[in-house]
Design a protein around this nucleic acid. Sequence first.
DNA 1: CCATACGTAC
Length: 581
Amino acid sequence: MSKISLRKCNGILSLSSYSYSSSSYSRSSKVKGSVVLNFECLDDAVTLFHQMVTMKPLPSVVDFSKLFNTMISMKHYWTVVSFFRQMWKLRITINGFILNSVINNYCLMHRADFGFSVLPIYLKNGIPFNTVTFSTLLRGIFSENKVKDAVELFKKLVREKICEPDEIMYATVMNGLSKRGHTQKTLSLLRLMEQGNTKPKIINYNIVIDSLCKARNLDAAINILNEMKQKDIPPNIVTYSSIIDGLCKLGQWEKVKTLFSEMVNLNMYPDVHTFNILIDGLCKDGKVEDVEEVMKHMVEKGVEPNVITYNVIMDGYCLRGQLDRARRIFDILIDKGIEPDIISYNILINGYCKKKKVDEAIQLFGEISQKGSKPNIVTYNTILRGLFGVGRIGVAKQVFVEMVSTGLVPNLSIYHTLLDGYFKYGLVEEAMSLFNKLERKTENIDITSYHIIINGLCKNGELDKAHAIFQKLSSMGLLPDVRTYNTMITGFCLQGLLDEAKDMLRKMEGNNCLPNNVTYNVIVQGYLRCRKINEMVTFMKEMTGRGFSFDATTAELLVNAISENPCVVDMLPELHAEIKK
DNA sequence: CCATACGTAC
């Protein structure tokens, strides 16, 4: 008698045949044969599968299920589809676990529609749906950004009592909403749970807290933390880490310290995740000097830095233009035997590109595949931006073609890079032809795309076309935001059409879109460039009255205007201090 | 008895 056993260890899946000398169920019996298959090699998985389906008796459905999940974790989605089809043809017994995994597999391929097509198989086989089935589908729909569809499905499940959501299904919906900016809806769902049968668990609270923190609403987040304590749902390390992240991003370092002590007092010890959040916050706030101390502290506490720790630090140095230090960090990471991931490369490539050291960036880009990693869409976007940044348009076009040939599907960010690049070098026709292609599918376009087009047309002297597109926005169901208005106003100012710029400013206020610092600076700069000092002063007063201040360009123009004509100073008595800077 | 869905950092 023999039994197939699948064991997963260290990414290696092994298939072993055990023989049993007695009737007692024991694994210590001698091993008759054993095949160890390394699943980094797809062929071996296929071989294993074929061994399994030809075995008599067949391995259990649990073994197939384990194989499927291992394949899914290795992203061999199409292989799973093929395995499932073969099992189906061979009429091998299936159950709800394996069907749920097949749905998950389709969802991870961003084909939730295929996932739905698995549902009839449950019915045909008398297998009931469960909360896992629908949680998996919901996550898949969200991952395709179809928020409305996901919410609709969730409501239908509840309304038609198809399944009673558990806290994980709620968590799936809440997370889908939260990650797409729907903070209030996420909070509402928590409140709904509190009223219903499925009481919220820590995971639901954590999602809401993270959502509020990401929306920079730290007071509300801390209120929820206090609610948890009152309701005897003890916050955990994730709860605290999320809030610490929010506080770091607002630069509230005193409160960060308070929360750290609070955690430790509750016998909760910051882990590598928490420290990475802290280090990231310090780097982003320019406090790179403090990072070393934090690193020392974490190592003393027995928390080992991981690849993300080093990535965060490299990003911090790149942000400050300290590329050499970032590259040191990269070498330390290698020295420590930590494998750089694609994000490590993306951070450094971005650092080089921002410094216009595109050749170094390309060199590093080449190293990625040698080190067994693969450039992703972000890598290509970064390289493309870098190439456009130094005017190497021909190479950029080649790289784009290469990217598509590797099977990567261009996303909106890639198109934005191309459009922006074309406009920057006066390739208006090329940009517009790409834009027209994209516009045929509305899902290809967002407000940022229009922002790039309007800006590009303005900068290339095509103000009328830009204005026409601007006018068209509302009919497309897209609301111009403050950046769109600013772009249009900048365009008018560049052409000296200051009345039009002023009209646009009033129009945005009328449309409930408040002008910001950029708006006022652009208009004041427009008046300064045309030496219309009286009008400029009017706007300057309005601007300072609203608490806005000059940016460097405005200040410089003002200084120039004064040096040309010292009388200007007399018109601005209240701004003396500002000008002296 | 063994296998599937959920939360924090670049």
